[in-house]
Amino acid sequence: MKGGPRRLRFGLALVGFELTLVVLAPLVLPNPHAIVDPRGAGLLPPFSRVFVVTLQDGTSFAGLELSRKGEVLALRRGSSWEQVPEKLVVSVKPQWYLLGSDTLGRDVAARLVKAGQISLSVGVSSLALAVTLGTLWGMAAVLGPRWLDRLLMALVDAALALPLLFVLLAVSAFVRPSLGTVVLMLGFFSWMGVARLVRGQALLCREKPWFLAAQGLGLKPLRLALVHVLPHLVTPLATDATLRLGDLILLEAALSFLGFGVPPPIPSWGSMAAEGFEVWRLAFWLPVFPGLAIALSVFAFATVADGLGELGRGERIAGEAA
């Protein structure tokens, strides 16, 4: 039983690390939307440094190397050296690209963090919708008459078999893409597992003596559901929800990767990977970084879910032995 808490701690540490990064890193990273000279600073590998030269008329250029010959400043943009009279130059600043730059010379690290904010919040919002819908559906199945239960659950079983990506793509062909529609679509098509879990757990509760006692007191079904059943669902629901969050992040990434998720210019991990994939021969790391960010989040959430699950099982076994 020691494995549970340790795994849970490890998972929570990973999630905490990622959340800290996503929330605090924008303070030190450059503007994720700033386009810095695509020719001089585009498609740079990780750990690159460029010199950003700003001229009097407000234009700026970036180059990998800088040299001074008397009154003239020479800047290497791509493969060619270009010269600027020093008196026109307002400032020369070095800029680091921790994870390289994309085709437009935007900072990949900064965009990755910004995209993380988007992808994680889309995941959490659609998860909230899915959990709400699923809980309502599952509770309706338990509280309603037997035929309703059978109908609702048979529908859930069949709907669990939907090829989600196809259905989501078909829907997104006809709706205007926005953050809101993505959240609605994801949430609306992933509550079925929650409904099944809620029903199963609620049925277990219904056989417990305390439930029979509450029922014997003549409480209304709604009160029974809210006050006497729902609190017992929190642990299994939390375990299931953390795992589901990973699935939702993967689904959103696939949708955005195909160009039907979060619309540009909002970055998301999936759309960043899609942009990177267009130039994978030149810069294979461009699709790899967002991919790793997704893998890290899903791994972290799944580890937390595993830990919670083991913890729950341990509690139950201890409870039964007593």
Partner: peptide, 21 residues
Amino acid sequence: LGAYAMPTFLVAAVLLWLFAY
């Protein structure tokens, strides 16, 4: 668990870079 967590395009990108490029 890592394999489960990886999005398909990450695996595809790495395989393409390794075995096609």
